[in-house]
Simulated scan of single mutants.
Amino acid sequence: MPRQMTCPGCGEEDELTGERTESGIHISCDACGARWPRDTPYTCATCQGQDIHMRPQALTQYSRGTQLSIVSLHYIPLCADCDADMLARANRQKPVPGQYRSAASRRREGGEETGNLILPR
């Protein structure tokens, strides 16, 4: 399963490069110069916690007019602290909505996600 890479130093997601060495693959951040081994445990991009759970996210499209259909699922990381409400929803066997962006993969400004998210019960 592919990982969402985020620099532990500055939170950069795009300017990252990997280098294969004898001890494994090391990732370097071109923005701040931080370097770390790729195969480390997941960490939350918002709180730097390591209690991360992979849960399915629904990928949807309108198949017939206004009929919304789940066409695929993929797994995203959810932080037990920052994404607690969404993790509880996912633990009730409900997929994470496609428009949800987890705090574990994208740093939240001031701990709050921008925009409103209305979820069905």
Results as ranks from 00 to 15, higher is better:
34 A>H: 08
75 Y>V: 12
96 V>C: 09
56 P>G: 07
84 A>D: 07
74 H>Y: 15
90 A>S: 08
44 C>D: 02
87 L>V: 08
108 R>V: 06
2 P>K: 14
81 D>R: 15
24 G>I: 00
45 A>H: 02
69 S>V: 15
55 R>K: 14
34 A>N: 11
117 L>H: 12
114 T>K: 08
4 Q>D: 11
68 L>M: 15
113 E>W: 06
116 N>Y: 06
95 P>D: 03
110 G>M: 00
107 R>C: 08
58 A>Y: 03
70 I>M: 06
121 R>F: 05
68 L>Y: 06
82 C>R: 01
64 R>C: 01
106 R>H: 15
113 E>F: 07
61 Q>C: 13
43 T>A: 05
41 P>T: 08
67 Q>I: 07
39 D>L: 03
26 H>W: 09
8 P>A: 14
117 L>A: 09
75 Y>K: 10
99 Q>F: 14
103 A>F: 01
1 M>E: 10
68 L>D: 05
99 Q>G: 09
33 G>Q: 04
74 H>W: 14
21 T>F: 00
28 S>H: 12
71 V>M: 06
95 P>C: 05
15 E>L: 11
15 E>D: 10
101 R>I: 13
43 T>F: 11
19 E>S: 09
49 G>A: 02
45 A>C: 06
80 A>E: 10
78 L>Q: 08
10 C>R: 02
63 S>K: 03
29 C>L: 06
119 L>H: 06
26 H>R: 01
